[in-house]
Nucleic acid binder design. Structure first.
Length: 349
DNA sequence: AATAGACTCAACCGCAGTAAT
DNA sequence: CATTACTGCGGTTGAGTCTAT
């Protein structure tokens, strides 16, 4: 013989939305008696509800420490980063976001963040660039991106957006290049038969940093990053997460670097670590095979002039200055002059 | 102004691990 | 030790609201 049932006759218990009167009964009971057995609570509180329903109402809505209102950018970044590590472990993600419930985070993910990543060409499950045909579905949206609709587009939070106030046409170009970077990322990781072509093409386009004159050393295993989930933020900076010994998390605010092992990430993303994963935090890889992020959307670069040029020879990150941008587009011209298809000409124009 | 479709989010459902008997 | 309910979690639903036409 086991336990007695939680609710003797569920059919007689009320379901559906809670009334203010029910809320008041539940809150006042818990304030008086504290949290105890959910099973016994409804009867003691005078509620015609199942204990499970009471628990849900309390934890997801009535708890006094629940934070209301829209998610902040930092919270979005945190959710995305934690999701890339933890997956759909909403309760564990919620543990790192004080005042937010797992249900709330789950809803926000499904209604906002998931779509946001999809629009960016990022698979919300793997946090890697999408390598299926659906990727092409993003092209039309990105290509139609204009400064006017950037307010609605996920790209709106990017610092590049500030730059667009100076050079509006750059918006669509960056959007296009972001897609192209994803495409090259896919080529780089999935096509081992002719990796040099991909690398050379990407090099011509300025998408691969020239590290000491050696670009994209393909002698190494191109797939050695495939098991790593991506690190992504609401600001559009996507790069390999930094679980491996060759990878580092960089906080551009204080220039600190942190070494995270997979185990550390999985088990102890504590408050201090959360701080290091602010919106200014990027994940940078020391692996030369990985394509760098096209543009570093760190808050540092709030204007076009601050989108720095040059490749960082130590970590491979690639950011743009006007000079670098010009060089990059020269690469495009070269590609066109080489007699590529009209597709690319149309794509770029 | 009316309507349909899209979106949001509170609440429910069902499963798995845990605990009581 | 077996049985069965409890608890917590993730997935899903659907009523209410918003938006576009």
């Amino acid at each position: 013989m086991g336990r007695s049932p939680c609710c003797n006759d569920v059919s007689e218990l009320k379901k559906g939305p809670w009334t203010p009167e029910e809320d008041e009964l539940l809150v006042s009971y818990i304030q008086k008696n504290g949290l105890g057995s959910w099973r016994a609570l409804p009867k003691a509180a005078g509620l015609n509800r199942c204990g499970k329903s009471c628990r849900l109402r309390w934890t997801n809505y009535l708890r006094p420490d629940i934070k209301r209102g829209r998610f902040t950018e930092d919270e979005e970044d945190m959710i995305i980063k934690l999701h890339s590590v933890l997956g759909n472990k909403w309760s564990r993600i919620a543990a790192h976001l004080p005042g937010r419930t797992d249900n709330e985070i789950k809803n926000y993910w499904n209604t906002h963040l998931r779509k946001k990543l999809l629009q960016m060409g990022i698979d919300p499950v793997t946090h890697k660039p999408r390598n299926d045909l659906n990727l092409l579905a993003n092209l039309s949206q990105l290509l139609s991106t204009t400064p006017q609709n950037l307010g609605y587009n996920p790209l709106s939070n990017w610092d590049i957006n500030n730059a667009l106030r100076i050079q509006p046409n750059v918006a669509a170009e960056v959007a296009k290049l972001q897609v192209l970077q994803n495409i090259f990322q896919i080529l780089n990781t999935s096509n081992n038969s002719s990796p040099n072509i991909d690398h050379n093409m990407a090099l011509n386009l300025g998408l691969i940093p020239n590290v000491n004159g050696i670009i994209g050393n393909n002698n190494n295993n191109n797939n050695n990053n495939n098991n790593n989930p991506m690190c992504s933020t609401s600001q559009g900076f996507y790069q390999a997460p930094n679980y491996g010994p060759n990878q580092t998390i960089v906080d551009h605010n204080n220039n600190n670097k942190y070494d995270y092992t997979q185990e550390l990430y999985n088990t102890s993303l504590d408050i201090n670590h959360n701080k290091s994963l602010s919106s200014s935090t990027t994940c940078e890889t020391l692996d030369e095979n990985r394509l760098p992020s096209l543009v570093n959307f760190s808050p540092k670069g709030s204007t076009i002039n601050q989108i720095e040029s040059n490749t960082n020879s130590t970590n491979g990150s690639c950011v743009l200055t006007p000079t670098a941008t010009a060089e990059l587009f020269e690469g495009w011209e070269k590609l066109l002059d080489d007699g590529n298809s009209d597709f690319w000409k149309e794509f770029i124009n």
